[in-house]
Simulated assay, not measured.
Amino acid sequence: MQLTESPADRFAADLAALWPDDERTGPLGLAVSGGPDSLALMLLAHGALPGRIAVASIDHGLRPEAAGEVALVERLAGERGIRFNAFTLTPQPGNLQAQARAARYAALAEWARAAGLGAVATAHHADDQAETLLMRLNRGSGLAGLAGARASTTIEGSEITLLRPLLGWRKSALEAVVAAAGITPVRDPSNANPDFERAAMRERIAASSDWLDPAQLAASAAHIAEGWQAIAWYAGLDWDEMVAPDESAPGGVGYAYHANVPRVVAIETIMRIIAELGGHATRAEAARAWDRLWQGENASLGGVLAVPGVERVEKVGVLMRVWRFRPEPPRGKMN
């Protein structure tokens, strides 16, 4: 008779696959809001790593109920002897959800550094991945966007490892973990507000449950992520082998790119060249630049001018496309 794997054992295996024992340099930090997903993360991690986790809860200053939700997490963590920290953020103008997300991750990175944590984990799960994949398909996103949330990455702008060990878990399974512990989680009303794109997509998925399987959609996102990882590796190779400093550029500041790879790879290389020259370009902008350069037209993006050409490359002895990138001259001084 085969025994059913317990949620605790399943979580421990999922975490070990992302964060092996020999790579753990400190406790695991958890972002816990008081909702069912993050509370399940706390309960599962406490079972798998007793005494080796810490919890942070963030009040974004957007809802009056948030302070009480942070207090709930503090109480539940205290009952289990889990180290706890609370943070209050000041809302910034603009897209509230995007600004809150950026501020949340910045706060988590700062907390991880100050507390000496080995990594930070969030409670993104399979249903989240399914929603993200469908939203981005609907926007015509490229492979990087369709890959969804990565199971292991770093917090943007930092060196802090970010883990998402629940990407293979359905939301219903996480809610069952919390219910089994006798805990009533909080419910953020914005998660059910169809004015927000994600909430609207969640409603549509639920209405199509007879033929849409969120677990399989999440698996597809994981497969796309593997493909994207291969492209990122190839782009690194393209940079090492096909990009060189352009000594002919004014002041010697520029790069020559021997463009001979598929468009999706070249876009990554173009973005990196722009960044190395002090600019910034989105993938969409880099894609448009590739289109122009491939057609033999100059391209300007992120404060950088790219000029296409065809040259004989000595080391291979053949004619190749060579695109030269250099800081864009001030207006009125272009020759």
Rank of each mutant, 00 (worst) to 15 (best):
E5Q: 15
E5L: 13
P7E: 03
A8S: 13
A12E: 07
D14N: 12
L18V: 05
P20A: 11
P20L: 11
T25S: 14
G29K: 14
A31D: 03
G35M: 06
P36S: 06
L39R: 10
L41Y: 05
L44E: 06
H46C: 05
P50G: 08
R52F: 02
I53Y: 07
H60Y: 10
P64H: 03
E69T: 05
E74V: 01
L76K: 03
E79H: 05
G81K: 11
T90K: 12
P93E: 10
N95F: 05
A100V: 10
R113V: 06
R113L: 06
V120I: 01
A121V: 00
T122G: 06
H124Y: 01
D127G: 02
D127N: 04
T132H: 01
L133I: 02
M135S: 00
R139N: 03
G140P: 01
L143M: 08
A147E: 01
G148E: 03
R150Q: 11
T153I: 04
I155F: 04
E156F: 02
S158T: 12
P165I: 07
L166E: 13
G168W: 12
K171Q: 08
A179D: 14
G182D: 15
I183M: 09
V186L: 00
R198Y: 15
R198A: 15
A199K: 03
A219E: 15
A221S: 13
I224V: 13
G236Y: 14
D238I: 03
A244W: 09
P245W: 12
S248A: 15
S248W: 04
P250G: 07
G251R: 09
G254F: 04
R263E: 10
V264E: 15
V265W: 00
E268W: 04
I274K: 06
A275G: 05
R283D: 11
E285H: 13
A289I: 13
G296H: 08
A299W: 11
S300A: 12
L305F: 01
P308Q: 08
K315P: 07
G317N: 06
P330W: 02
P330Y: 05
N335S: 13
